[in-house]
Design a binder for these strands. Structure first.
Length: 161
DNA sequence: TAGGCCATCTGGTCCT
DNA sequence: AGGACCAGATGGCCTA
């Protein structure tokens, strides 16, 4: 199990893709399928599978035909990069969830990505308008907290309504 | 069981 | 040239 992935992923039961991918791909490229996890017959068209630009580039760079294992290795490398990118994105999303005004805790269901983004937007808008109102009315610092708290609850209430 | 959410793979495109 | 980013496809898990 990839410890990094298990830290970030909300799906600990997700299959370890490379372990599954290797045997599946070795059967051939067009209509491969995983035994227990994600699948990859994802060519958008129905035509024969085509090489990605990166794969084609790699083949052209060496001015030789890449062997099947070499292509497989390259594919795994590209997949791994993409996985890491998505994991980083999820880490950032978790960071955003942490600063959002909603109930956190083990018994509370995690906000979905779309809900996190929408709530973040509302939160920012609310803070911005509060700040502007404060400037306009010359509020003192001690007045700020109760007002903000009220507005936060207001936004959260209507978001989850 | 349908629908929502998610992880992963993949090919295409853009950027450095 | 290689990596980052993006979107489509696919299948698994979970909940109402």
């Amino acid at each position: 199990m990839d410890s990094d992935a298990s830290l970030v992923s909300s799906r600990p039961s997700s299959p370890e893709p490379d372990d599954l991918f290797l045997p599946a791909r070795s059967k051939g490229s067009g209509s491969s399928s995983f035994t227990g996890g994600t699948v990859s017959s994802s060519t958008p068209s129905d035509g024969p599978p085509e090489l990605s630009a990166e794969l084609r580039g790699a083949m052209g760079a060496d001015k030789k035909q890449m062997t099947e294992p070499e292509l497989q290795q390259l594919r795994l490398k590209i997949n791994s990069r993409e996985r890491k990118r998505m994991h980083d994105l999820n880490i950032a999303m978790d960071g955003l969830r942490e600063v959002m005004p909603y109930a956190h805790g083990p018994s509370v269901r995690k906000l979905s990505k779309i809900a996190t983004l929408l709530l973040a937007r509302n939160y920012i808008l609310m803070l911005t308008s509060s700040l502007e109102e404060m400037k306009r009315l010359n509020y003192c610092g001690s007045c700020l907290s109760p007002l903000l708290l009220l507005r936060v609850w207001f936004v959260v209430f209507f978001f989850f309504k």
